[in-house]
C-alpha cells in the first residue's frame, strides 16, 4: 500500500508542477476564448454561441444526465480502438524493426494504410460490422495502427549499433535485450506516436458514431444538428475536446515524463 500512495503522490506533484508551469498556455487559451466570444457576438447565437453559452448548455446536459453516459460510451469506443492499435501496432512495429526484410516489406503496406481515408474504412466497417460498437472501434483501430506501427519500427531501427554490441558482449537474454536496451529507446518514438494516434482516435470515433450509431457524442451531434441546436453542438464539441485534453495531459504526459526522466538531466 505504501508504494501505491507514494506513486499517487508522485503523480500528483509532477502533474501539479506541470500544470503550474502552464500559465503561458492558460493565457493563450483565454485569448482564444476572447476571440471566440467576439466572433460569437458578431454573428449571433444561431451561427455561433459564445463559450459561456456552450459551457452552460454542457452543464445543463450534465445535470439532465445526458452528457455523462454519452461521453463514457464514446470514450470507451475510442479507447478500445486506441488500446487495440497500441498493443498490436507497437508489437508488430518492434518485430518489423528488428528485421530489415520485414521493415522493407512493411513499408508499401503502411503507405497504403496511411493513404486510405478513414471514411473509406468506415464504409467497409459498416458493411462488415453493422451499427454498434464494432464499426467505430474497428475504424479507430485501423486509422491509428499505421501511425503507431511506424513509430515503433523507426524506434527499433534507430537503436545505436554500439549499444547492440554491448548487449551482445554481455550475453543478454532476449527478454533483457527487449526491456533494458530496446524498449527504453523505442519509447521515445512510441510516445509521440501514441499521442498522435490518441488525437486521431477521438476524431475518428465521432465521425464513425455520427454515421453509424444511435448513441455516443457523435450520435448526439447528429441529433443536435438536425434540431439546428448550435449551442448543444458546441457543448458536445467542448465535451469531446475536453476529454481528449484530460487524457493527454493527465495521463500520457506525466507517464511520458516519468519514463523519459533520463533525457532531461
Amino acid at each position: 500500500m505504501k508504494w501505491r500512495s507514494g506513486l499517487i503522490q508522485e503523480w500528483a506533484t509532477s502533474t501539479g508542477n506541470y500544470l503550474w508551469s502552464g500559465w503561458g498556455s492558460l493565457a493563450s487559451l483565454c485569448l482564444f476564448m476572447a476571440i471566440w466570444t467576439l466572433t460569437a457576438q458578431g454573428f449571433g447565437p444561431l451561427i455561433l454561441p459564445t463559450p459561456l453559452e456552450a459551457l452552460s448548455t454542457l452543464a445543463r446536459l450534465f445535470q439532465a444526465g445526458e452528457a455523462g453516459p454519452e461521453i463514457l460510451i464514446t470514450a470507451r469506443r475510442a479507447l478500445a480502438g486506441f488500446g487495440l492499435s497500441v498493443a498490436v501496432g507497437s508489437l508488430l512495429g518492434l518485430a518489423a524493426g528488428v528485421s530489415l526484410t520485414a521493415s522493407m516489406m512493411a513499408r508499401p503496406i503502411i503507405t497504403v494504410l496511411v493513404g486510405m481515408p478513414p471514411i473509406a474504412w468506415l464504409i467497409l466497417a459498416l458493411l462488415w460490422f453493422g451499427a454498434g460498437d464494432g464499426t467505430p472501434i474497428f475504424t479507430v483501430f485501423i486509422a491509428c495502427f499505421p501511425i503507431i506501427f511506424v513509430g515503433a519500427m523507426q524506434g527499433t531501427r534507430t537503436l545505436d549499433g554500439q549499444l547492440k554490441e554491448v548487449a551482445q558482449m554481455f550475453g543478454l537474454s532476449t527478454w533483457m535485450k527487449l526491456t533494458d536496451v530496446y524498449l527504453p529507446h523505442v519509447v521515445s518514438y512510441l510516445f509521440p506516436a501514441w499521442i498522435a494516434a490518441l488525437g486521431m482516435s477521438w476524431k475518428i470515433v465521432v465521425m464513425a458514431e455520427l454515421l453509424s450509431t444511435e448513441d455516443g457524442i457523435g450520435a448526439a451531434l447528429a441529433v443536435s444538428r438536425s434540431h439546428l441546436d448550435t449551442a448543444a453542438s458546441m457543448a458536445w464539441i467542448v465535451a469531446l475536446v475536453g476529454t481528449l485534453l484530460a487524457i493527454e495531459y493527465l495521463l500520457l504526459e506525466p507517464l511520458k515524463r516519468k519514463v523519459e526522466s533520463w533525457r532531461t538531466l
Partner: peptide, 27 residues
C-alpha cells in the same frame, strides 16, 4: 567470462550509473 571495454564508454543512457555498472551481473 570475457568482457569488453570500448573506445567510448557506451553506457546505457537510460540507466543510472549504478545500474549500468551492475548490468553484466544482471545479465
Amino acid at each position: 567470462r570475457p568482457a569488453m571495454m570500448f573506445q567510448q564508454p557506451r553506457l546505457l543512457p537510460w540507466k543510472r550509473t549504478l545500474d549500468n555498472i551492475a548490468f553484466g551481473l544482471k545479465a
